[in-house]
């Protein structure tokens, strides 16, 4: 579904991605972890075509993003749902308008159906009754849930969630991760999820990859990741202050 080969991305002379290789199978919930500044956000932006890499090949749903023109890129982007770390909600719109906006732009559904579907998505993320609130009258967790509802309202083939739990309390963080897992279960879409809540991410992901200085240095199922002997994995789990040894689900 998503394949990256030798992808390098440089900003102001610094490599954000360094000959990165990665494969995400169709229908997987793929977790990306790594220390801050390791290139997770850049990788998400490369996958949804927001950043063009300097070199390498990026193939998403059969489209080579490094060769795609503007129209091909837009066609692919209409098949992706992206939740940004800082929500990226349109501040001049209500929560309902934010969620219904992708449907208005990308589908030919009648307005009644659009509103109906947007309300259903908001209810699904636990925000029934908040439809008419503008984003500046929502809490951090509520904003994040509106952003999630907006990202998945079109039932995208690929859902990219860039640290949807950043800055949230542990309870809200887990609720959001569970919601993402629920959406994937219902829609059968492919999900790339980065999160600072490593333990929470590993409890919902099928596969987890560790990014380190612009590269994916280890990838596996959560249990194998947990037990990996690679020094960087151990160091990362140590820095994340997670208990070593047996996986919590053993």
């Amino acid at each position: 579904m998503i394949g990256l080969v030798n992808v390098t991305c440089t900003f102001d002379g610094e490599k954000a991605l360094d000959e990165l290789g990665m494969h995400v199978p169709k229908g997987a919930l793929f977790g990306l972890v790594g220390p801050g500044g390791c290139g997770k956000s850049t990788l998400c932006k490369v996958v949804c075509g927001l950043v063009r890499p300097d070199s390498g090949v990026v193939v998403v749903a059969g489209v080579d993003l490094t060769k795609a023109d503007r129209k091909a890129l837009q066609a692919l982007q209409s098949r992706c749902g992206v939740q940004f770390q800082n929500d990226a909600l349109f501040e001049h719109m209500t929560a309902l308008d934010n969620v219904s906006y992708p449907l208005r732009r990308l589908t030919d559904l009648p307005p009644v159906d659009i509103e109906d579907r947007a309300r259903t998505r908001l209810a699904m993320v636990g925000l029934a009754g908040f439809e008419d609130r503008p984003p500046n009258r929502l809490s951090g967790g509520q904003r994040r849930r509106v952003a999630l509802a907006r990202a998945c309202v079109t039932d995208p083939e690929i859902l990219i969630c860039g640290d949807p739990t950043a800055g949230l309390d542990p309870v809200t963080s887990r609720r959001i991760l569970d919601m993402i897992a629920g959406i994937r279960y219902e829609s059968k879409n492919t999900v790339i999820l980065t999160s600072s809540d490593v333990l929470g991410l590993m409890s919902v992901a099928d596969r987890v990859a560790l990014m380190w200085e612009g590269r994916v240095i280890h990838e596996g199922t959560p249990p194998t990741f947990w037990r990996a002997e690679l020094p960087e994995v151990r160091r990362f789990l140590d820095d994340a202050r997670l208990p070593f040894g047996g996986a919590p689900w053993d």
Binding site: K45, S78, C80, D87
Partner: peptide, 14 residues
Amino acid sequence: VTDQVDGLRCLAID
């Protein structure tokens, strides 16, 4: 800076 412009791009809006 709040990624709203990228958000538009992701909705295939130029």
